[in-house]
């Protein structure tokens, strides 16, 4: 299973960009909030396609039709 990751870029002007990878939905926002809590003021947040993806626990039902 993929583990969530932060990719953090600290610019020479002091601005910090954080990308949360490897997770989706509510968990992703919780992780973004963690960095905000450490550093302070959030200017902008963008949610990408992965955020809207279903949670990583996927159940696949297979039924074999023996007709």
């Amino acid at each position: 299973m993929e583990r969530p990751e932060f990719e953090i870029n600290i610019g020479k002007n002091g601005k910090v960009t954080v990308e949360v990878k490897g997770t989706s939905g509510k968990r992703c926002l919780e992780l973004a909030d963690l960095i905000k809590e450490i550093l302070g003021h959030e200017e902008k947040r963008t949610l990408t396609a992965e955020y809207y993806a279903p949670d990583s626990k996927v159940r696949i039902n297979t039924k074999v039709n023996r007709n």
């Binding site: 002091g14 910090v16 990878k21 302070g40 902008k44 963008t46 990408t48």
Partner: peptide
């Protein structure tokens, strides 16, 4: 990637 945030650090120290 699933979320991108831009932050301005608060330098209270």
């Amino acid at each position: 990637m699933s979320a991108v945030c831009v932050l301005t650090p608060l330098v209270i120290t």
